[in-house]
Design a protein around this nucleic acid. Structure first.
Lengths: 181, 181, 181, 181
DNA sequence: GATGAATGAGACTTCATTCAT
DNA sequence: GATGAATGAAGTCTCATTCAT
């Protein structure tokens, strides 16, 4: 009874359920029914809190962007621990791929943002944030290039099903992030 | 009457129409009806030549992989013309982004391949092919890293809507592809 | 089996069912479900044969206009039998009101046409047709005025629930249709 | 705070908003949400003051009848100014059609009254009132016939989209309202 | 071989109504 | 007294798929 009257919590539950479904099955598989079942709310609740499925999808993908951005804090901590940034980054990439649904979440966000301009800002959260972290170790151009390298390597591993090409990535990162780069 | 019996041609027309639709609106927007209308064939033909919509989607995405691979021949020619490979590659990336639907086609293929193992081989066509081209100018690890960088930069441009960060890409490619890399 | 493959018949059955529902419950009460049930076809058939419910509604109301126009042939026959046109017309009005659903059908058509320009032509079938019949007995202006009088009287009877004010109508028609009018 | 407790005023605001919506989009387009938005009251207020949507619709259509009846005062004044009643009435009809939403309001009332007996009395307000005005210039039967003529002509103009057939209407009214009629 | 009619599941969405607050 | 959160029914519509022809 009392817990039912919690609009903010309910809205959050719906968004998180939608985000989880996108991670698991892709943004194209999002339906009101599945979100409602996953969130444990009646079907009508999904349309009560969101104008349309597109609106819900947008909210879920923006939440996904924040989930990805939160991961940046972990990466930041690890990079600040010292050690070779190239090696640390490569290790982080390997760990990133271990949680496949979460890794696919970023891919879904990217694909959606490519066609939906309102998601562009969300899509840039990760790359801009990571570039910011790497700017400590290299110039801005090199930092951005390193981000492209990381994203390309992660995408390649996810789409080909092959393990991360760690040696190639680490060597390349070292070349890019070295003071001479 | 006017159209001779040409099962292979009809099948190809259907696949190409599906591929064009994926490029324009995404794989999720694929339906029998739209494909049939686009290909100029009766609705029944799409189910006659393909077991299911998933089957048609798979064929279309594999065709998309070949379309991308064909582009590699253009890139190969340009790279063979001599000149700085980093500069040439960067220029090619800029040209690549000019045809947005075709550029999105690879994104669709990647997203689909991440969830459908039968498409992994198709998804690897591009990266393996490009790595092969670049192996002329650098070692295999550097070539693969350069592919990751290119794919990451292209994806970033597509998803953020920003222009290609050509200076960062070119400098990074130069660092990766230089004999010293 | 064999009877099921009759697209034209099926389309007609759907239109007639929709028209009957409009006569009974009004155009606003038209739904796919009710039409399908009334016509004895599956739910999907109503959307297979008509692009949208608006499309079906339009077809049904145009059919209604033809139903009304068919009645004009009866009126024509009665008016040609000789006798006082005013008395005959008044009698026909009384008979018209006896079949209440059919009488309401014209009201629905009028109301719909007032907001949907594509129905204007259909709505004019009755008044133009009746004016044509009456033009034999009076000038065109008087004929049109007589049509207005008849339609106004019928509408008044239908909406107030009172019986047709036959004496007033007949006297007025006589005044309008008399040679001196 | 700013809005004092004014139940009667709020109820009236809701009814007037509903009436305006019926005039604009038809009675079938009436919903609690739209009425609440139009009246500037909370959604709950529409169900708080009216038992059901049907109840609200009835109140709105009865208000519409009063709006139409109010117009009779204007017509009364114009008819009392002297001059040819037929010409005056015809002119008033033309002015009536100039405000299309208000003109459609009477059509909505008529259509609703044809199916909802509780609205019959409201629907008769206009015709009885107008007949009362015209009874000054002619006998009761002629006055009623003139009302039918006017209503039929107005309906015809509204539904066919054609301008009022003023010559036919004026001539007919003159024939009906002349002392000899 | 080929096609378009056909259908039933299921998608999105709106909404009247209820009711806890 | 008043309100907005809440919900389940029902609406429109799309569509993959089947199948008679």
């Amino acid at each position: 009874m009392s817990v039912r009257r919690d609009p903010a919590g309910r809205r959050r539950a719906i968004v998180e359920a939608a985000c989880a479904l996108i991670a698991e099955d892709g943004a194209a598989a999002l339906t009101h029914r599945r979100v409602a079942a996953r969130a444990g709310v009646p079907l009508g609740a999904t349309t009560y809190y969101f104008t349309s499925l597109g609106d819900l999808s947008r909210a879920a993908l923006q939440h996904a962007a924040e989930v990805c951005a939160q991961l940046l804090r972990v990466w930041d901590g690890r990079l600040r621990e010292g050690g070779d940034p190239a090696a640390t980054l490569t290790a982080l990439c390997g760990e990133y791929l271990a949680d496949r649904p979460r890794a696919l979440l970023k891919t879904e966000l990217y694909t959606a943002a490519a066609r939906r301009p309102e998601l562009r800002q969300a899509a840039a959260l990760w790359s801009d944030g990571l570039a910011g972290l790497l700017a400590v170790h290299a110039g801005p151009d090199a930092a951005r290039a390193a981000v492209f390298l990381v994203d390309g390597a992660l995408l390649n591993a996810l789409t080909t099903g092959r393990p991360l090409d760690a040696p190639a990535v680490e060597a390349a990162l070292r070349a890019l992030l070295s003071p001479a780069g």
